[in-house]
Design a protein around this nucleic acid. Structure first.
Lengths: 153, 153
DNA sequence: GAAGAAAGGTTGTTGCTACAACAAAACTCT
DNA sequence: AGAGTTTTGTTGTAGCAACAACCTTTCTTC
Protein backbone atom coordinates (compact mmCIF):
# COMPACT_ATOMS: atom_id res chain seq x y z
CA UNK A 1 0.00 0.00 0.00
CA UNK A 2 2.80 2.42 0.85
CA UNK A 3 4.57 1.65 -2.40
CA UNK A 4 1.35 1.93 -4.34
CA UNK A 5 0.43 5.34 -2.95
CA UNK A 6 3.85 6.64 -3.83
CA UNK A 7 3.62 5.31 -7.33
CA UNK A 8 0.20 6.91 -7.82
CA UNK A 9 1.49 10.21 -6.53
CA UNK A 10 4.43 10.17 -8.90
CA UNK A 11 2.31 9.23 -11.88
CA UNK A 12 -0.07 12.04 -11.07
CA UNK A 13 2.57 14.70 -10.40
CA UNK A 14 5.30 14.11 -12.92
CA UNK A 15 3.39 14.92 -16.13
CA UNK A 16 2.50 18.34 -14.81
CA UNK A 17 6.10 19.12 -13.92
CA UNK A 18 7.31 18.10 -17.36
CA UNK A 19 4.52 19.74 -19.29
CA UNK A 20 4.62 23.09 -17.62
CA UNK A 21 8.37 23.57 -18.00
CA UNK A 22 8.37 22.59 -21.67
CA UNK A 23 5.26 24.58 -22.47
CA UNK A 24 6.64 27.64 -20.77
CA UNK A 25 10.14 27.48 -22.20
CA UNK A 26 9.60 25.85 -25.59
CA UNK A 27 5.91 25.98 -26.40
CA UNK A 28 5.69 22.21 -26.56
CA UNK A 29 3.80 19.65 -24.55
CA UNK A 30 5.89 16.84 -23.17
CA UNK A 31 4.31 14.45 -25.60
CA UNK A 32 5.07 16.73 -28.55
CA UNK A 33 8.64 17.06 -27.37
CA UNK A 34 8.91 13.30 -27.04
CA UNK A 35 7.60 12.80 -30.57
CA UNK A 36 10.13 15.25 -31.96
CA UNK A 37 12.91 13.69 -29.89
CA UNK A 38 12.14 10.21 -31.19
CA UNK A 39 12.20 11.48 -34.76
CA UNK A 40 15.45 13.31 -34.13
CA UNK A 41 17.13 10.07 -33.15
CA UNK A 42 15.74 8.03 -36.00
CA UNK A 43 17.45 7.12 -39.27
CA UNK A 44 17.06 10.08 -41.64
CA UNK A 45 14.96 11.69 -38.92
CA UNK A 46 12.07 9.75 -40.38
CA UNK A 47 9.72 7.12 -39.00
CA UNK A 48 6.53 5.49 -40.11
CA UNK A 49 3.53 6.52 -38.12
CA UNK A 50 3.09 3.07 -36.67
CA UNK A 51 6.70 2.87 -35.55
CA UNK A 52 6.48 6.33 -34.05
CA UNK A 53 3.30 5.39 -32.24
CA UNK A 54 5.11 2.42 -30.74
CA UNK A 55 8.09 4.40 -29.55
CA UNK A 56 5.92 7.08 -28.02
CA UNK A 57 3.51 4.53 -26.67
CA UNK A 58 0.51 6.23 -28.15
CA UNK A 59 -2.35 5.13 -30.31
CA UNK A 60 -2.26 5.89 -33.99
CA UNK A 61 -5.30 8.12 -33.60
CA UNK A 62 -3.65 10.28 -30.99
CA UNK A 63 -0.42 10.47 -32.94
CA UNK A 64 -2.23 11.41 -36.12
CA UNK A 65 -3.78 14.45 -34.46
CA UNK A 66 -0.52 15.50 -32.85
CA UNK A 67 1.52 15.12 -36.00
CA UNK A 68 -1.02 17.11 -37.97
CA UNK A 69 -0.67 19.95 -35.48
CA UNK A 70 3.12 19.70 -35.57
CA UNK A 71 2.94 19.75 -39.35
CA UNK A 72 0.78 22.88 -39.25
CA UNK A 73 3.55 24.47 -37.21
CA UNK A 74 6.20 23.37 -39.69
CA UNK A 75 8.10 21.11 -37.31
CA UNK A 76 7.32 17.85 -39.08
CA UNK A 77 6.33 16.81 -42.58
CA UNK A 78 4.41 13.78 -43.75
CA UNK A 79 4.74 11.93 -47.02
CA UNK A 80 3.48 8.59 -48.29
CA UNK A 81 5.78 5.64 -47.77
CA UNK A 82 7.20 4.44 -51.09
CA UNK A 83 7.27 0.78 -50.10
CA UNK A 84 3.78 0.52 -48.69
CA UNK A 85 1.03 2.65 -50.08
CA UNK A 86 -0.96 2.30 -46.88
CA UNK A 87 1.76 3.79 -44.75
CA UNK A 88 2.74 7.37 -43.99
CA UNK A 89 6.19 8.58 -43.05
CA UNK A 90 6.79 11.45 -40.66
CA UNK A 91 10.03 13.38 -41.02
CA UNK A 92 11.50 16.09 -38.82
CA UNK A 93 11.99 19.37 -40.67
CA UNK A 94 14.96 21.68 -40.12
CA UNK A 95 12.73 23.87 -37.97
CA UNK A 96 11.69 20.81 -36.00
CA UNK A 97 15.30 19.86 -35.41
CA UNK A 98 16.02 23.38 -34.22
CA UNK A 99 13.06 23.21 -31.87
CA UNK A 100 14.34 19.99 -30.29
CA UNK A 101 17.85 21.35 -29.96
CA UNK A 102 16.53 24.51 -28.36
CA UNK A 103 14.23 22.68 -25.96
CA UNK A 104 16.53 19.87 -24.89
CA UNK A 105 18.86 21.60 -22.42
CA UNK A 106 16.08 23.09 -20.35
CA UNK A 107 14.19 19.85 -20.35
CA UNK A 108 17.22 17.85 -19.29
CA UNK A 109 17.95 20.33 -16.53
CA UNK A 110 14.37 20.06 -15.36
CA UNK A 111 14.51 16.28 -15.28
CA UNK A 112 17.77 16.31 -13.40
CA UNK A 113 16.67 18.91 -10.95
CA UNK A 114 13.27 17.48 -10.20
CA UNK A 115 13.96 13.79 -10.48
CA UNK A 116 17.38 12.30 -10.87
CA UNK A 117 19.34 14.55 -8.57
CA UNK A 118 17.20 13.42 -5.68
CA UNK A 119 18.38 9.84 -6.07
CA UNK A 120 21.61 8.15 -5.18
CA UNK A 121 23.45 6.14 -7.83
CA UNK A 122 22.23 3.02 -6.12
CA UNK A 123 18.65 4.23 -6.21
CA UNK A 124 18.91 5.03 -9.90
CA UNK A 125 19.99 1.47 -10.47
CA UNK A 126 17.09 0.18 -8.39
CA UNK A 127 14.68 2.39 -10.28
CA UNK A 128 15.88 0.89 -13.53
CA UNK A 129 15.34 -2.63 -12.26
CA UNK A 130 11.99 -2.00 -10.67
CA UNK A 131 10.97 -0.13 -13.80
CA UNK A 132 11.84 -3.14 -15.90
CA UNK A 133 9.81 -5.39 -13.65
CA UNK A 134 6.81 -3.10 -13.90
CA UNK A 135 7.11 -2.66 -17.63
CA UNK A 136 7.21 -6.39 -18.09
CA UNK A 137 3.50 -6.23 -17.29
CA UNK A 138 2.57 -2.81 -18.57
CA UNK A 139 4.47 -3.00 -21.84
CA UNK A 140 5.28 -6.64 -22.55
CA UNK A 141 6.68 -5.86 -25.96
CA UNK A 142 9.15 -3.36 -24.54
CA UNK A 143 8.26 -0.91 -27.27
CA UNK A 144 9.18 2.17 -25.32
CA UNK A 145 12.42 1.08 -23.79
CA UNK A 146 13.71 -0.67 -26.86
CA UNK A 147 16.04 2.24 -27.51
CA UNK A 148 18.01 1.80 -24.34
CA UNK A 149 18.62 -1.71 -23.17
CA UNK A 150 22.31 -2.02 -22.40
CA UNK A 151 22.08 -5.59 -21.16
CA UNK A 152 19.95 -6.82 -23.99
CA UNK A 153 19.55 -10.58 -24.02
CA UNK B 1 19.00 7.61 -19.09
CA UNK B 2 17.87 4.01 -18.77
CA UNK B 3 16.12 4.77 -15.51
CA UNK B 4 14.57 7.89 -16.93
CA UNK B 5 13.14 6.17 -20.00
CA UNK B 6 11.55 3.55 -17.80
CA UNK B 7 10.04 6.13 -15.53
CA UNK B 8 8.59 7.99 -18.51
CA UNK B 9 7.14 4.79 -19.90
CA UNK B 10 5.48 3.94 -16.60
CA UNK B 11 4.07 7.40 -16.15
CA UNK B 12 2.66 7.28 -19.64
CA UNK B 13 1.23 3.76 -19.46
CA UNK B 14 -0.13 3.39 -15.97
CA UNK B 15 -2.94 5.95 -16.13
CA UNK B 16 -4.42 4.22 -19.14
CA UNK B 17 -4.38 0.84 -17.44
CA UNK B 18 -6.11 2.22 -14.37
CA UNK B 19 -8.59 4.37 -16.22
CA UNK B 20 -9.78 1.80 -18.68
CA UNK B 21 -10.44 -0.89 -16.09
CA UNK B 22 -12.34 1.43 -13.79
CA UNK B 23 -14.26 3.05 -16.58
CA UNK B 24 -15.26 -0.29 -18.03
CA UNK B 25 -16.20 -1.97 -14.75
CA UNK B 26 -17.45 0.92 -12.66
CA UNK B 27 -18.05 3.89 -14.94
CA UNK B 28 -15.49 5.99 -13.09
CA UNK B 29 -12.22 7.57 -14.08
CA UNK B 30 -9.31 6.78 -11.83
CA UNK B 31 -9.33 10.31 -10.52
CA UNK B 32 -13.03 10.14 -9.73
CA UNK B 33 -12.48 6.84 -7.96
CA UNK B 34 -9.63 8.34 -6.00
CA UNK B 35 -11.78 11.28 -4.93
CA UNK B 36 -14.54 8.97 -3.76
CA UNK B 37 -12.02 6.72 -2.00
CA UNK B 38 -10.49 9.64 -0.10
CA UNK B 39 -13.93 10.75 1.02
CA UNK B 40 -14.84 7.23 2.04
CA UNK B 41 -11.90 7.12 4.43
CA UNK B 42 -12.50 10.55 5.90
CA UNK B 43 -14.23 11.40 9.16
CA UNK B 44 -17.99 11.43 8.50
CA UNK B 45 -17.14 10.77 4.85
CA UNK B 46 -16.76 14.51 4.56
CA UNK B 47 -13.89 16.77 3.63
CA UNK B 48 -13.46 20.40 2.78
CA UNK B 49 -12.68 21.04 -0.85
CA UNK B 50 -9.21 22.32 -0.08
CA UNK B 51 -8.36 19.28 2.01
CA UNK B 52 -9.70 16.99 -0.69
CA UNK B 53 -7.69 18.81 -3.31
CA UNK B 54 -4.57 18.22 -1.23
CA UNK B 55 -5.16 14.55 -0.76
CA UNK B 56 -5.89 14.01 -4.42
CA UNK B 57 -3.11 16.32 -5.44
CA UNK B 58 -5.28 18.35 -7.71
CA UNK B 59 -6.01 22.01 -8.09
CA UNK B 60 -9.16 23.41 -6.59
CA UNK B 61 -10.42 24.28 -10.05
CA UNK B 62 -10.09 20.75 -11.31
CA UNK B 63 -11.66 19.34 -8.20
CA UNK B 64 -14.55 21.77 -8.38
CA UNK B 65 -15.45 20.55 -11.87
CA UNK B 66 -15.11 16.90 -10.93
CA UNK B 67 -17.15 17.21 -7.74
CA UNK B 68 -19.88 19.03 -9.61
CA UNK B 69 -20.11 16.13 -12.07
CA UNK B 70 -20.09 13.61 -9.23
CA UNK B 71 -22.80 15.61 -7.54
CA UNK B 72 -24.88 15.54 -10.72
CA UNK B 73 -24.61 11.78 -10.59
CA UNK B 74 -25.67 11.66 -6.97
CA UNK B 75 -22.42 10.22 -5.62
CA UNK B 76 -21.39 13.28 -3.62
CA UNK B 77 -23.15 16.24 -2.08
CA UNK B 78 -21.84 19.67 -1.26
CA UNK B 79 -22.89 21.98 1.54
CA UNK B 80 -21.43 25.14 3.03
CA UNK B 81 -19.05 24.67 5.91
CA UNK B 82 -20.63 25.93 9.16
CA UNK B 83 -17.37 27.14 10.66
CA UNK B 84 -16.06 29.03 7.66
CA UNK B 85 -18.52 30.61 5.31
CA UNK B 86 -15.95 30.65 2.54
CA UNK B 87 -15.49 26.92 2.59
CA UNK B 88 -17.48 24.10 1.05
CA UNK B 89 -17.72 20.56 2.38
CA UNK B 90 -18.03 17.56 0.12
CA UNK B 91 -19.72 14.49 1.55
CA UNK B 92 -20.05 11.02 0.10
CA UNK B 93 -23.70 9.99 -0.35
CA UNK B 94 -25.00 6.48 0.27
CA UNK B 95 -24.92 5.90 -3.47
CA UNK B 96 -21.35 7.16 -3.58
CA UNK B 97 -20.35 4.77 -0.82
CA UNK B 98 -21.95 1.91 -2.71
CA UNK B 99 -20.10 2.92 -5.85
CA UNK B 100 -16.75 2.81 -4.06
CA UNK B 101 -17.53 -0.50 -2.43
CA UNK B 102 -18.55 -1.94 -5.78
CA UNK B 103 -15.52 -0.62 -7.62
CA UNK B 104 -12.82 -1.38 -5.07
CA UNK B 105 -12.32 -5.13 -5.51
CA UNK B 106 -11.85 -4.95 -9.26
CA UNK B 107 -9.53 -2.01 -8.92
CA UNK B 108 -7.41 -3.70 -6.30
CA UNK B 109 -7.22 -6.83 -8.40
CA UNK B 110 -6.16 -4.75 -11.37
CA UNK B 111 -3.43 -3.03 -9.40
CA UNK B 112 -2.15 -6.30 -8.04
CA UNK B 113 -2.25 -8.04 -11.36
CA UNK B 114 -0.66 -5.30 -13.40
CA UNK B 115 1.75 -3.82 -10.92
CA UNK B 116 2.50 -5.32 -7.55
CA UNK B 117 2.52 -8.99 -8.46
CA UNK B 118 5.38 -8.36 -10.86
CA UNK B 119 7.63 -7.22 -8.04
CA UNK B 120 9.43 -9.12 -5.35
CA UNK B 121 8.99 -8.09 -1.73
CA UNK B 122 12.41 -6.53 -1.87
CA UNK B 123 11.50 -4.56 -4.97
CA UNK B 124 8.32 -3.27 -3.34
CA UNK B 125 10.46 -1.98 -0.51
CA UNK B 126 12.85 -0.35 -2.96
CA UNK B 127 9.95 1.22 -4.82
CA UNK B 128 8.70 2.74 -1.60
CA UNK B 129 12.10 4.22 -0.85
CA UNK B 130 12.79 5.50 -4.32
CA UNK B 131 9.26 6.87 -4.42
CA UNK B 132 9.90 8.81 -1.24
CA UNK B 133 13.11 10.22 -2.66
CA UNK B 134 11.31 11.35 -5.80
CA UNK B 135 8.36 12.80 -3.94
CA UNK B 136 10.70 14.79 -1.76
CA UNK B 137 11.17 16.94 -4.86
CA UNK B 138 7.83 16.56 -6.58
CA UNK B 139 5.67 16.95 -3.52
CA UNK B 140 7.75 18.53 -0.76
CA UNK B 141 4.76 18.87 1.53
CA UNK B 142 3.97 15.18 1.32
CA UNK B 143 0.32 15.96 0.82
CA UNK B 144 -0.48 12.80 -1.05
CA UNK B 145 1.34 10.26 1.03
CA UNK B 146 0.41 11.77 4.35
CA UNK B 147 -2.11 9.02 4.84
CA UNK B 148 0.42 6.25 4.87
CA UNK B 149 3.78 6.97 6.44
CA UNK B 150 4.58 4.10 8.76
CA UNK B 151 7.96 5.47 9.78
CA UNK B 152 6.78 8.99 10.31
CA UNK B 153 9.37 11.20 11.91
C1' DG C 1 -8.33 -14.01 -59.08
C1' DA C 2 -12.00 -12.69 -56.14
C1' DA C 3 -13.83 -12.41 -51.42
C1' DG C 4 -12.84 -11.59 -46.89
C1' DA C 5 -9.70 -10.32 -43.21
C1' DA C 6 -5.97 -7.62 -41.44
C1' DA C 7 -2.87 -3.60 -41.41
C1' DG C 8 -2.23 1.33 -41.62
C1' DG C 9 -4.14 5.97 -41.01
C1' DT C 10 -7.48 9.75 -40.69
C1' DT C 11 -11.34 12.27 -38.90
C1' DG C 12 -15.32 13.68 -35.87
C1' DT C 13 -17.27 13.83 -31.24
C1' DT C 14 -17.25 13.90 -26.45
C1' DG C 15 -15.25 14.70 -22.06
C1' DC C 16 -11.65 16.16 -19.05
C1' DT C 17 -7.79 19.36 -17.61
C1' DA C 18 -5.21 23.69 -17.44
C1' DC C 19 -5.43 28.49 -17.24
C1' DA C 20 -7.38 32.74 -16.16
C1' DA C 21 -10.87 35.67 -14.41
C1' DC C 22 -13.97 36.34 -10.95
C1' DA C 23 -16.52 36.68 -6.27
C1' DA C 24 -17.12 36.36 -1.38
C1' DA C 25 -15.54 35.72 3.19
C1' DA C 26 -11.79 36.13 6.54
C1' DC C 27 -7.58 37.92 8.29
C1' DT C 28 -4.10 41.97 9.17
C1' DC C 29 -2.65 46.29 10.39
C1' DT C 30 -2.98 50.73 11.74
C1' DA D 1 -13.53 50.21 12.02
C1' DG D 2 -11.80 50.45 7.39
C1' DA D 3 -8.41 49.36 3.49
C1' DG D 4 -5.85 45.96 1.59
C1' DT D 5 -4.45 41.12 1.28
C1' DT D 6 -5.13 36.18 1.58
C1' DT D 7 -7.92 32.21 1.57
C1' DT D 8 -11.53 29.50 -0.53
C1' DG D 9 -13.99 28.27 -4.14
C1' DT D 10 -16.62 28.63 -8.85
C1' DT D 11 -17.08 29.31 -13.78
C1' DG D 12 -15.88 30.09 -18.74
C1' DT D 13 -12.74 28.93 -22.43
C1' DA D 14 -9.43 26.61 -25.12
C1' DG D 15 -6.78 22.58 -26.12
C1' DC D 16 -5.67 17.72 -25.82
C1' DA D 17 -6.88 12.63 -25.44
C1' DA D 18 -10.02 8.59 -25.81
C1' DC D 19 -13.24 6.28 -28.50
C1' DA D 20 -15.54 4.98 -32.47
C1' DA D 21 -16.48 5.13 -37.30
C1' DC D 22 -14.56 5.12 -41.56
C1' DC D 23 -11.44 4.56 -45.75
C1' DT D 24 -7.68 2.52 -48.38
C1' DT D 25 -4.18 -0.91 -49.29
C1' DT D 26 -2.19 -5.41 -48.52
C1' DC D 27 -2.39 -10.17 -47.27
C1' DT D 28 -4.73 -14.78 -47.15
C1' DT D 29 -7.31 -18.44 -48.79
C1' DC D 30 -9.82 -21.18 -51.73
Amino acid sequence: MAAWLRLIAIVELLPGVLDSQLRRDAGLSHFEYFVLAMLSEAEARTLRMTALAHRTNSTLARLSHVVRRLEDRGLVERFPCPEDARATNARLTAAGWDAVVAAAPGHVANVRGNVLDGLSAEQVRQLTEVGDALLARLDPKGAMTALYRPEDA
